[in-house]
Write a protein that binds this DNA or RNA. Sequence first.
DNA 1: TCAGGCTGTTTCCGCCCGTC
DNA 2: GACGGGCGGAAACAGCCTGA
Length: 324
Amino acid sequence: MENIRRISTEFAEAFKQSELYNLYKEHKHELFIGVRNNYLNLYYNCDSIARVEYKLRDKKINCVIDKYYLDGKHYDSKDKNKRYKTGPKEIYAQYEVIKSHSNIRKTQEKKAQSKLVLLNNKNLDSNWFCIDIEYVKPFKNEAAKNEANFNARFDIIALSKKKPYRVALIELKYGKGSLKEPSGIKKHVSDFSVFLEKGYFEEHLKHDIIAIVESQKELGVDVPFGLIKESDLKKVPEFYFIILDNNAESVKASTPKQTLAGYLFKEKRWGCKRLAKNTVENEFGDITKRGNKFFATFLFSKATLDNLEITDIIDGAYDERIPE
DNA sequence: TCAGGCTGTTTCCGCCCGTC
DNA sequence: GACGGGCGGAAACAGCCTGA
């Protein structure tokens, strides 16, 4: 199968011989390796701080980094300096500089996403392991992509540690602002639903999962299960929304849960103060009911970025879970 | 005061295409 | 086929505005 998310064994070996592997080993608790279609993304704060490629001709690892992370300057998207080419040595040497520039970005959701994934993955007692972040379904070409009219990005993909492996597709929402359109709750329900309807899990995602795990093992990631066979995976994925940050700065303002209800339901529920025009219920029914055609679980936490201490991404210490 | 619409900015994804 | 340069599109934020 074409365009699967995996890298070659030779690439993985070269990676392990490079400074990037030392970097990863030394900072496992703050880095995530995303396996892509013949390349890797090294994430810090869910910012891609290196697109890692392997050049067969030269038997060499190349890196591309947005120059912002090195010099703190923002470049125009058309500026040829923006995507700076370098190698593992410079990424290793400049790591603290790169981190500092990532840290000052105001991307709370991404930082929370990173923290959640890393806290979960280092917790050996978690029931789940996150194998990918920022997942985009690949298509063969532009035509296939247009025809499918599907370009969702899933925040997190997690697998249960016990067989048969459950697959959790997770969307993280940080604060009320993240719930509204154009990429709010309704868009994501729609994406999830289409993903399910079109059979993309069966057709594609499960093959990606098998390949990603295989590549991660070759890269030296501590994956807490063996190689996965197709028959080891559950037939259907599960959908989750994690809602963080209970609008802590204001007492009077709606909580994310109240705001969310305005987007989900036709009538005011959950203490909702105001309804959105186009609700999820109008199109998809009550998605919090298990019997509904599309169904999702909502996990709420009052935690904010600074005090986030959830160490099991699905079964962890959330304040509320709907349905229970 | 607050929901939610609108716009600009930043970043990432991944294709296309010419060349070797 | 491998590779580099280029480019367009999408996500999702911040921040501002408006009207109930």
